[in-house]
Nucleic acid binder design. Structure first.
Length: 290
DNA sequence: CACTTGACCTGTCCGC
DNA sequence: TGCGGACAGGTCAAGT
């Protein structure tokens, strides 16, 4: 569920909250969530200060004053929540509506010198964080194959079209979910941009016309930008660096709207299965033309 | 190589 | 009420 907009909203928050803070202690109960050895953590994380927080695709990189970075993938249910020293005595916010941390989903806790905390929560344990040499991050297999950032200057129509063409025999939805075609689109924004471009998710890529590809290119950018503006999508789990939910779902045109009327034509939105994913579609304005 | 499916997990929801 | 099973979906490994 955290896709590009959600991860970007978390990045913005962390980049405002973390730089300059010095790590004092680390608590981790699940080796899968944070596989580095105690030796590595003691040597390269404890005592390090945060320099900046970057994002590439759905991956966060918390750069440290050592040669290392804390690299984080939230996968489906991961959260990175910061609690400042002024709001709590170790995880007890004054606002009673705010969840007390740590909770049952907390996998890793970082404590800073000023006693502020960063919690890595992850109900389903698919996510991970790990210490990596900053210079070696780009050598990860994922970074080697991942496609262009859709909100960056490198995401031209020509590049998009070229990469799409390598997946011409699969469905357009599977192609949009393929991180080597473009970075950061997941289930929510695939459905949303396909509706906006009036392309049926099950259409084979080779059947998607040039005009439709151009519409898709434009709508992917628009949908991602709108979602970042709205603080991302909170379907069930997602919260930003301050533990707050996003509001994009209220603006969604098809996602989670099965049984409701299409905003464009009034037809009932249906939920089907495409690319092994729950897929929301208006069968009247998103026709398969073949 | 292109493409699809299953595995990784746990909480929630639905039907009986 | 309790319980089993389906479902949620990002990425990688293994399959066709």
């Amino acid at each position: 569920m955290p896709e590009l907009p959600e991860v970007e909203v978390v990045r913005t928050g962390l980049n405002r909250l973390l730089p300059g803070r010095v790590v004092k202690s680390v608590l981790s109960d699940n080796p899968k969530s944070f596989p580095n050895s105690k030796n590595q953590i003691d040597a390269y994380l404890i005592g390090a200060s945060v320099v900046s927080v970057e994002r590439r695709a759905k991956v966060l990189m918390i750069h440290l004053s050592t040669k290392y970075s804390l690299v984080v993938h939230l996968k489906m249910t991961g959260q990175l929540v910061f609690r400042g020293e002024q709001e709590f005595g170790a995880g007890h916010p004054t606002d009673s509506l705010v969840k007390v941390l740590p909770d049952a989903s907390t996998r890793v806790q970082l404590q800073f010198e000023d006693d502020s905390m960063l919690f890595f929560n992850d109900q389903r344990k698919f996510g991970w964080m790990r210490l990596l040499v900053t210079q070696e991050i780009q050598e990860l297999p994922f970074f080697q194959k991942v496609g262009p950032e859709p909100l960056g200057p490198e995401f031209t129509f020509e590049i998009f079209n070229t990469r799409l063409s390598k997946r011409s025999n699969t469905t357009i939805k599977a192609a949009l979910l393929d991180q080597s075609v473009l970075a950061g689109v997941g289930n929510i924004y695939a459905d949303e941009s396909l509706w906006a471009a009036k392309v049926h998710p099950a259409t084979r890529v080779r059947e998607v016309s040039l005009a439709e590809r151009q519409a898709l290119h434009k709508e992917i950018i628009a949908v991602l930008k709108l979602s970042i503006e709205k603080g991302g999508s909170t379907d069930r789990n997602y919260v930003n660096a301050e533990g707050k939910k996003g509001s994009y779902i209220a603006f969604a045109k098809v996602f989670r709207r099965e049984g409701e009327a299409c905003y464009r034509c009034g037809q009932e939105i249906v939920k089907i299965r495409v690319a092994s994913r729950g897929t929301h579609v208006c069968n009247r304005c998103q026709k398969i033309v073949s």
